[in-house]
Simulated assay, not measured.
Amino acid sequence: MTNQVTLIATAAMGLEALVRDEVIDLGYTDVTTDNGKVIFNSDISGIARCNLWLRTADRIKLLMKEFPAYTFDELFEQTKALPWEDWLPEDAFIHVVGKSHKSTLYSVPDCQSIVKKAIVSRLQDAYHVHTRLEESGTRYKIEVAIHKDRVTMTIDTTGVGLHKRGYRVSQGEAPLKETLAASLIKLTNWTPDQPFVDPFAGSGTIPIEAALIGQNIAPGFNREFSAEEWDVIPQSIWDRALEEAEDLANYDQPLDITGTDISHQAVEMATENAMEAGLADLITWKQMQVKDFKPKTDSGYLVGNPPYGERLSEKEEVESIYRSLGEIMKDYPQWSVYIMTSHPGFEKLYGKKASKKRKLFNGFIRTDYYQFFGKK
């Protein structure tokens, strides 16, 4: 097995540049960006480091190969030609998933079946097994993705998506993904020495992610990854990656982070989640209506994901919240305000045109991220 690998960090639409920058910040230089993914070369330690450190990526996949395929025979032979034994042991539990778009091989179940047969055949030859493989060992999730007759064959190294940080013990309805929350913060110019407020904190995801960023704590420090179970990656690689994360964390960095919400239950959930993340002393939580919010400093950053008012019964209340926030923040021109919402009339209700706005998706909901830059 070679020590050099090609990895794919998958990204939500519109966030590829953020993921690319994170990959480069980790020291990887051979980086290319495509729709929904960032591709880069690394040594094997990159599997551990990227799973631990990437805040805005969805998952990390090991690229086996890309190749064209127009028939099932081509798919079988080219899949079998890959060195699966370099990664999969004889008893590997092989779970093949797939997708196909604008391709001759359009039947995903058939493609999955062909790929599974090819991998099994390769492993039988490699391990000199003439009976059925037991598949009683570690689970390997292999994806065959076909787009315009070009196959991308990968092995998932992450397991449960990277948005599952491991600190969320409580959540409300439709919680914001941790990776998207981190992205909202990374799209600002906030630095840890400046006040940070989320007046729509919900279960606390945005303030918690801000605290992790502020103290440079690796977002994956509190969870496990599927590649940790792979025999071919020595435990020492994971140990070194965790040691690096511990060394780079700046636990002495003071932070001024506040999360507020109108719901007492939400504040309780946020407090529990912050405690689980080990950040209980770093974030101030308050039950408060938006109309009662008043910044304590002349400048700072406000980042929020307020209700969108998509239900007709909530629309009037939500629009009142937007107006209140705009009225408050017009008296604090040095504050930078960042709001994600799907409401098309947000700027008019807020009373100000955004310095910049960016299209983002919160799950399947298309939103705009309104950015109001504070005066220097």
Rank of each mutant, 00 (worst) to 15 (best):
D239G: 07
G345M: 04
S236V: 14
G27R: 11
S113A: 13
G300T: 09
K186G: 03
G214S: 12
I8T: 01
A241M: 08
Y369I: 03
V303H: 08
D30M: 06
S45K: 14
V120K: 02
Q215N: 13
K294T: 11
F346E: 00
V23L: 01
K356H: 13
A126C: 11
S203Q: 07
T157G: 02
K296S: 14
E317H: 11
L26K: 12
D252Y: 12
E229Y: 15
Y308S: 04
D156T: 00
P306V: 00
M64C: 07
G137M: 05
S320H: 09
G278H: 10
W84K: 09
I213M: 15
R55K: 12
I257G: 03
T131M: 10
K65G: 05
E347K: 02
K148D: 02
I44K: 15
S263M: 11
L82N: 05
D261H: 11
H101K: 14
Q4R: 10
G309A: 03
P89K: 06
F76S: 04
I237C: 07
Q371V: 12
D58M: 04
D149N: 11
F40Y: 14
D125T: 15
K116Y: 01
W84M: 08
H147S: 10
K348S: 12
K296L: 06
G300N: 11
K353F: 07
S100Q: 07
K348F: 02
T188M: 07
I44T: 14
W190R: 01
F76A: 11
T154N: 09
T258L: 13
K117M: 03
V267S: 05
D156M: 04
L15V: 04
Q253N: 07
D149T: 02
A182C: 06
S103A: 09
D156L: 00
K375W: 08
S355T: 11
A12K: 02
E244A: 06
A227G: 08
V97N: 13
S263H: 10
Y127N: 01
L279E: 05
N250Y: 09
K164Y: 04
V23C: 05
G204A: 11
N41E: 13
I146D: 01
Q287N: 05
R168I: 01
M329V: 06
T154E: 11
Q289A: 14
K294Q: 12
S42E: 03
S236E: 15
L248M: 14
K65D: 15
I328G: 03
H343E: 02
E173W: 06
D43A: 03
G46H: 06
W238P: 06
E173G: 02
K80A: 15
I94Y: 10
L325Q: 02
A211S: 14
A11P: 00
K348L: 07
H95I: 09
L75I: 09
T152W: 07
L88M: 11
I328W: 01
Y70E: 13
G161E: 07
F196N: 03
A211C: 12
K177I: 01
Y70F: 14
Y369M: 05
R20F: 00
Y332R: 04
M13Q: 15
L187Y: 08
I155T: 12
D231Q: 14
K37V: 00
V303Y: 04
V318S: 06
K102H: 12
T33E: 15
E327G: 00
A245Q: 15
I339V: 15
E316K: 13
Y70V: 11
K164E: 00
I39L: 14
Y167K: 03
L184Q: 10
